[in-house]
Design a binder for these strands. Structure first.
Length: 425
RNA sequence: AGAGAGUUGGGUGAGUGGCUUAAACCAGCAGUUUGCUAAACUGUCGUACGUGUCAAAGCGUACCGGGGGUUCGAAUCCCCCACUCUCUACCA
């Protein structure tokens, strides 16, 4: 959520930023926010003054009662009941303005960083760099991963349908072991890089949904346990970032760097189509997530560090990848700058998004009320960042497709100690 | 799930309608003293919003788990909800 003070002080920048997100009436919306805030302030001023008067009258009534001047006390009571009515009215309009303002602010996305390219869709994303050669497959007939998993009987979608439904695969044998190996590999790498491991709950309450921006409006994308009012997490970002909701952290604690593995649950309502076969899109999948809580001056350094870290993982797995800087039209609602990492999957002959690393600046922290006190004892919002490191299914798809040979599928070297085998045959 | 007891500042914890401007202690911060450390002493020490200002100080309002109510006045009385602890039941 944007801060009104930020909008006031950086009005032109905010307008330009939101236009980059193709929000054409940005100027009018931002002006409206300032107006609502002005109204709120002037109502608060009236209300506070009346309440101050009422407080002092109450105090004097207490004293009159004590000294036995009951009749005097009764007299002044009438004034307080007058004030009470007025305060009640002002209270109602204050709450109304505040609500309108909050609802307006909830609809405004984050201001993109200046380096974010203009654009409408994924076609306008900027390719920052590419790494690794497109693999040439040494097989008679290259198979997509959905055929490979059948051939080697390592992932069973039909079985998942029987137990749960479409999009809930069952991993079997070496397929299951590959999942476990990847999770452990990713966690160990993060620990070596200095992250603190977190194992969070995978059901979260409503407040947490608001804290990271899944709520309001995106409730349709989360599974919801109605009996207990809990949401199944779509990503570990939600519980891990919400650890710091309503917290004042010490400046010297920054940066906070957490990593966590969780299953992720996404309803993906209505988003099934030709490009989402096999592992490309699932209702349940596994992901290791990294989260940074950063000093505002250091958050872009942190973003670069996270991007480099994720690229390191892809290099170790031997997967060709490219890094995209998302354009204004393709970037997530809460993000100021997002890098997507895509790996090339050689049988589908497509780039698959396997990680998304974002700096949210103070946008989430404002909702979370995540603050720190600086040297001059002033309260500031921290910056939050997160990134996948990594999401498993498409990594598995790429490993299977890119490493297929006549003899079977050769596992990446770095995974062998975790797997206990070299080939899926 | 049933019964009972609770939830007060960073921590412990007092406070049953106006003497609370939330006591006291601990921790923290600043200072004094001191060969150093420690101790002692003095002061300071919540958050949000508003107001004020170059910035601040100051001032106002709200906040004692959350929401609502009674009252001129609520941490205190009433209602609803959440959570914690104890016992019982159940369970890995």
């Amino acid at each position: 959520m944007l801060q009104v003070s930020f909008i006031r002080e950086n009005f032109d920048q905010a307008v330009l930023g939101l236009r980059k997100r193709n929000l054409n009436d940005a100027e009018a919306l931002l002006k409206q926010a300032i107006e609502l805030d002005d109204d709120r302030k002037s109502i608060q001023l009236q209300r506070d003054q009346l309440q101050a008067e009422s407080n002092s009258i109450s105090k004097s009534i207490g004293q009159l009662m004590k000294s036995g001047q009951i009749a005097e006390a009764e007299k002044v009571k009438s004034r307080t009941s007058e004030i009470k009515l007025q305060v009640k009215e002002l209270e109602v309009s204050y709450t109304e303005k505040e609500l309108q303002l909050t609802q307006l602010l909830y609809t405004l996305p984050n201001i993109p960083h200046e380096s974010v390219p203009a654009g409408k869709s994924a076609d306008d994303n900027e390719i920052v760099l590419s790494h690794g050669a497109i693999p040439v497959l040494n097989v008679d007939e290259k198979l997509a991963h959905w055929d490979l998993i059948k051939k080697y009987d390592i992932i069973d979608f039909e079985l998942g349908v029987k137990i749960s439904g479409a999009g809930f695969p069952v991993y079997k044998g070496k397929g299951a072991r590959l999942q476990r190996a990847l999770i452990n590999f990713f966690l160990d790498e993060a620990l070596q890089a200095g992250y603190v491991e977190i194992q969070p709950p995978i059901l979260v309450n409503e407040d947490s949904g608001y804290g990271t921006g899944q709520l309001p409006d995106k409730e349709g994308q989360m599974y919801f346990a109605t009996e207990d009012n809990l949401y199944l997490i779509p990503t570990a970002e939600v519980p891990i970032t919400n650890i710091y909701r309503n917290e004042i952290v010490q400046e010297e604690q920054l940066p906070i760097r957490n990593v966590g593995y969780t299953p992720c649950f996404r309803r993906e309502a209505g988003s099934w189509g030709a490009h989402v076969r096999g592992l490309n899109r699932l209702h349940q999948f596994d992901k290791v997530e990294i989260v940074h809580i950063s000093h505002p001056d250091k958050s872009y350094e942190a973003l670069e560090e996270m991007s480099a870290y994720v690229q390191g993982l892809l290099k170790k797995l031997g997967l060709p990848y490219r890094v995209l800087r998302l354009c204004g039209g393709d970037m997530g609602f809460t993000s100021a700058l997002t890098y997507d990492m895509e790996v090339f999957s050689a049988a589908q002959e497509r780039w698959l998004e396997v990680s998304s690393v974002s700096n949210f600046e103070a946008f989430q922290a404002n909702r979370l009320k995540l603050r720190f006190r600086d040297e001059s004892k002033k309260m500031n919002l921290a910056h939050t960042l997160n990134g996948s490191a990594l999401a498993l299914p498409r990594i598995v798809a790429a490993i299977l497709e890119n490493n297929q040979q006549a003899a079977g599928i050769k596992m990446p070297e770095v995974l062998v100690p975790y797997l206990g085998f070299e080939w899926i045959q």
